[in-house]
Every structure is written in structure tokens, then in C-alpha cells.
Design a protein around this nucleic acid. Structure first.
Lengths: 221, 221
DNA sequence: CGCCTTCCGTGACTTTGTCACCAAACGAAG
DNA sequence: CTTCGTTTGGTGACAAAGTCACGGAAGGCG
């Protein structure tokens, strides 16, 4: 726990808040650091607090009864988790899992304080709901992707999006979860891309050899 | 347009509103009747008003670039459309289509009045956001369904859910859109169910012959 | 009745998912 | 360094679902 105003001041997103709201956030927010792999919430959990990420990244994914998984979205710095907001507002239980990806510093605001802030601060309301609206569209895109788009196209797009320095660090399983598919299929697709000279496979890593070629595949859908 | 308070009084969901909010809603809301088939909004449209259904039903569905469609949810009496709320809050464009199913009487509240009501009325905020939270979970369920559940199971469930009086009035195409699949596949599955004596097919209609048998299939996943 | 539109059935083929194994690469313990 | 268990990746055989291309049957309507 930090002195009041310390972490609040560090949030660009919070400058729009009026003084009383910032003070209330400081007082009510519990600041915490979570290690990679930590489970922030799981399906069936009641929602006890509104969550705001200061630094790091939390991955939110859904698991089916058959064990298959799909990544819904990630919560990055200055963002809040739409599922948490939805659960708080609708008084529902979590229906997905939140997993810390990189060490994350986050603020937890208890239900009571969250509701009070929503009541009292127009700035806080904007903060909460603007993000909400934008994330909702993201989820719909994800639904469209999984339901309608071919896997090779989505795979090519993911590789391009993730290829920070010409390579992607991820296992085939990681990628399958990202796309809502399964390892075997992803492995085969990657093997084909390798045979065609577009990428080169290593254990836990994929080197991009022909970005333009991947672009061509990605643009096909 | 009705006299102030007329239609507002008819809404069970609105009793929680305080007098000023009800007056504001009465003044700002545009009451309108829409025929079946009317398009309430389409992808790319800007969101000009918050929508509330008084009677009837609006189907919200997403269309992919390849022409495939999937029903996201329906908006029934006393409900509002989560996508509209999300677009208003996030200042985004519509990403789906809203189509009137049965003749619908609805209230449209302009953006300005919507924002003012959100600011001024705690009751209105509750009204808007409680529904929002619940619908969001529905969408996640839909995503899980489309991504992970077998079609025969989802089909059996749909038939049972829709079999009001022992039969379902829908074309195979209707059902395919409902499930996010395609007509040919649905036709084949239905044919199999008919061969197994679980249903009987007519043009635009499906008679349920063995609900227990369908239950067994539906329970398998 | 003839004509047109909608709805349904089906074969052939592609893509994706499931199941069952195996092998290579890695890492921790001895 | 070797052993051994775990993680990761590869592959064949098959099932489920989607795509493409038809063609035919049922209804509506002049």
C-alpha cells in the first residue's frame, strides 16, 4: 500500500478524475504485485473487486468443458478488465479465467467503494464505461474470427502481429489457445508454412522468413 | 409520440426511476413502431440513440465478409440492446445488424439525453448497467458455444428450446444462422435426426417426435 | 396452367478437430 | 555427465464441419 495519491498520480487515465474521486480511489484501492502465472480469477468465482492494471499484463481466457481454451483479450497498463466490470454490474460470477502473463502491478477497488465512486464521480464513470464499450467490440471481433475466419489466415495475422523482432516466442500450444484451435492443427499449419519457406521453426520459437508472403495469406480473408 | 409519462408508466423496469428521471425520459424518448423485417441498425452505422424495447423482439446478428451470419442475441420487452449501449459509451460504430422479428414498439433516447440521464439518475444507471452485465455473459456463452460445442448438440438444444407446441417453425437456413453454421450442414443433421425418428421434417417446419431422444443428445455435451 | 422464387437434398471435396502414439529437446537430480 | 521425467512437436487415421455445385420439389402468382 502506497501513500494516498502516489499511484493515482502515476495513471495517465486518471487525470480526468476530480480531486474527491482521486482521494477515494487512493483510500479504497489496494495495490498489489502479482507474479507471472498467478490466477487473478477463475470461472465460478464471485467478483469482489474492480481491477485496474498499472503495469504488466493479464490474459483472460475461456475454458470449455472439454478442456479447449481460447484467449478473449488481454488487460494492459491503465486498462481494466471488462469481464470484472460486467460481473460487478450484473452481479454475476466470473465465467472465464484471468492469468498474469508478465509481473503485474494492479489496483483492486472493493465492490462498495466501486459503487460509491460510480455514483459520485462522473470522471470515474467515463473511465469505466469508455473502456467497457471499446472492449465489447473487441469481443465481438473475436467471436467473428473464431466463427468465420480460416485458421491459416488467422495464424498468419497472429505471426505478423507478434513478430516483434522478426520472431515469435510461443509454443504451438500457446498459439492454438490464442486462436481457439488445437495444437495438432496449428503444428500442421506451421509445418506447411515452413515447407513453403515463410517461417522457420524452433522449439518454442518461430522465425519469420518471409513477412510479405505471410501478408499475402493474411490478406486473403 | 405519447403524452408524458404514458409509456414510461407502462414499463415495469422503470418503476425504480425517480420522478425527474421519468419526466426526462418521457420528454426525450421518441416512441416508434417498427414492422417485421425492418433494419434498426447496420454495421458501420453511427449510434444516434439509446434503444429500449416496449413490445416485440429485435434480433441482433453479425455478418462475416464471406456472407455467413450468426445470431448474437435478441432484445425483448423491457430490454435494451447491449451493443447500442456499448457503442454509445465507447463512441464506436455498430458492428452488427439489428432486425425486427415481430412488430416492435420501441423508445429511442437521443445521445445527449441518454448522457444526461446517466449523469443525473442513479436509477437510470442501474437500469442500463445491470442489463449490460448480464448480456455480456450471454455473449461469452455464445462464443463458447460456437467455438467449442458440437453442432448436433447445439441443434438438439435449439429444437427443444424452440419447440413451443411440439414443433418449430423455421427454415434450415434460419436455424443455421441461429447456430452460426451453414444450411447444408444443418439440413444433413436434421435428415439424420429424421431417419432416427426423433423429428419429422416439413417445408419450413419441424415436428418434434421424440423429445426424450433429443434431450439425450443435448445432454451429451 | 406455366413461371419464378424459396426451400431442401446430396455428392464430392477441403478444412478443422479428435485420438493415439512416438520422438526429439530440455531440465533437474543424482 | 548421465538418467529420467516433462515438455514440446510430428504424424497417421479418422470424424465433424464447411464449401461448392448441382438439381429437384413445394408454393405463390399472373
Amino acid at each position: 500500500m502506497q501513500p494516498a495519491g502516489d499511484w493515482v498520480a502515476a495513471f495517465p487515465a486518471l487525470v480526468q478524475l476530480d480531486a474527491p474521486a482521486r482521494a477515494a480511489l487512493s483510500a479504497a484501492g489496494q495495490r498489489m504485485t502479482l507474479p507471472p502465472g498467478a490466477e487473478v480469477f477463475a470461472p465460478g468465482d464471485p467478483c469482489r473487486a474492480w481491477l485496474l492494471v498499472e503495469s504488466g499484463s493479464v490474459r483472460v481466457q475461456m475454458t470449455s468443458d472439454t478442456g479447449r481454451e481460447v484467449v478473449l483479450y488481454r488487460v494492459g497498463p491503465t486498462e481494466s478488465c471488462i469481464l470484472t466490470t460486467a460481473c460487478l454490474l450484473g452481479e454475476e460470477l466470473y465465467s472465464a479465467t484471468g492469468i498474469v502473463e508478465t509481473e503485474t502491478v494492479g489496483i483492486a477497488v472493493g465492490v462498495g467503494a466501486f459503487r460509491r465512486l460510480l455514483e459520485d464521480s462522473a470522471g470515474f464513470r467515463d473511465l469505466v464505461f469508455a473502456g467497457f464499450g471499446r472492449r465489447f467490440t473487441d469481443i465481438l471481433m473475436r467471436l467473428e474470427d473464431v466463427a468465420f475466419h480460416r485458421l491459416d489466415i488467422r495464424l498468419a495475422r497472429l505471426l505478423l502481429a507478434r513478430a516483434a523482432d522478426g520472431s515469435v516466442d510461443a509454443t504451438h500450444q500457446d498459439i492454438a489457445v490464442e486462436l481457439g484451435s488445437v495444437r495438432e492443427v496449428v503444428s500442421r499449419q506451421l509445418k506447411t508454412l515452413e515447407r513453403d519457406g515463410l517461417i522457420q521453426l524452433d522449439r518454442g520459437r518461430i522465425e519469420i522468413r518471409d513477412p510479405a508472403g505471410l501478408q499475402r495469406i493474411a490478406a486473403a480473408g
